[in-house]
C-alpha cells in the first residue's frame, strides 16, 4: 500500500514540477488526438449529413456498418494499418510507420465511424420542420444544410467529444503504429503501459492522472456547451 502512496505523491511531484518528459508526452497525445479528431470530423460530418438526408439503396446497411465500426478494436486498426504501412505494405513508401502521422492515421480510422454514426443520429433527430422552415424562408440549399447542422449542434458536439475521448485514450493502435519511441511517438497511454510494465508507477500514475483530468475537462466543457446551446 505504501508504494502506491509513494507513487501518487511522486506523480503529483512530476506534474507540479512540469517534468519535461510528462510535458512532451502529454503535448504529443493532445496533438495526435486533436489532429485525428479534426480530420475525422472534417470528412465525417459532411458524409454523415449526406447519408442522413439522402435516400439511396443500401442506406440502412451503410448506417449499420458505421454503427458496428464504432466499436472497432484498436489493435485491429493497428494491425490493419501496420500491414499497409510496413515496408513491405502497399503504403510503405510513405514512411509513416513509427511516426506521429502513423498514429494519427490509425486514430482517424478509429474516430471516423464514431463521428459519422453519432452525426447521422444527431441529424436524424432534428425536427423535419427545420428543413421546410429554412427552405420556406428562402434559404439556399447550402444554408439549409448549415441550419440543420446548427440545429443538431448538441449531437455534433457529443460526436466530437466522443471521437476525441476515444482516440486520446486508446493504446493498441498507438503502440503498434507509433512504436512508443521516447520523445517522438510516446503518448500518454503507451507510456503508462510501458512504465507500468517496468514498475515505474510514479510516471505511469502521473500520466494516468493527467489523462483522467483531460477526460474530466472534456466532459466539463461538453456540459458547459450543452447548457449554453439550450439557453
Amino acid at each position: 500500500m505504501e508504494y502506491l502512496l509513494t507513487a501518487i505523491t511522486d506523480a503529483f511531484g512530476l506534474i507540479l514540477s512540469l517534468d519535461p518528459e510528462v510535458f512532451t508526452i502529454t503535448l504529443l497525445s493532445l496533438r495526435v488526438a486533436g489532429t485525428a479528431t479534426v480530420l475525422a470530423a472534417v470528412t465525417g460530418i459532411p458524409l454523415a449529413y449526406l447519408v442522413a438526408t439522402r435516400d439511396f439503396r443500401g442506406k440502412s446497411a451503410l448506417i449499420t456498418v458505421f454503427n458496428t465500426l464504432m466499436a472497432l478494436p484498436t489493435v485491429v486498426v493497428g494491425l490493419f494499418c501496420y500491414s499497409f504501412l510496413s515496408r513491405k505494405g502497399p503504403l510503405g513508401f510513405l514512411d509513416l510507420l513509427f511516426t506521429p502521422s502513423g498514429i494519427i492515421l490509425g486514430d482517424i480510422i478509429l474516430a471516423f465511424p464514431l463521428i459519422v454514426g453519432l452525426t447521422i443520429a444527431a441529424v436524424n433527430a432534428v425536427d423535419p420542420r427545420a428543413r421546410i422552415t429554412a427552405m420556406s424562408l428562402g434559404a439556399s440549399p447550402r444554408l439549409v444544410s448549415l441550419t440543420i447542422l446548427i440545429e443538431a449542434r448538441f449531437g455534433l458536439m457529443a460526436a466530437l467529444f466522443n471521437g476525441f475521448g476515444r482516440v486520446v485514450a486508446e493504446v493498441g493502435s498507438a503502440m503498434m503504429l507509433g512504436g512508443n519511441i521516447r520523445g517522438y511517438t510516446r503518448t500518454i497511454t503507451t507510456a503508462i503501459a510501458l512504465e507500468t510494465s517496468k514498475g515505474e508507477f510514479a510516471l505511469g500514475m502521473a500520466l494516468g492522472i493527467i489523462l483522467l483530468t483531460l477526460a474530466l475537462m472534456v466532459n466539463f466543457t461538453f456540459r458547459r456547451l450543452q447548457m449554453t446551446s439550450q439557453r
Binding site: D127, R129, I132, T133, T147, I150, S229
Partner: peptide, 8 residues
C-alpha cells in the same frame, strides 16, 4: 407552417 418551428 401549421405548427411553426422555431430554430433553437
Amino acid at each position: 407552417l401549421q405548427s411553426p418551428y422555431l430554430f433553437r
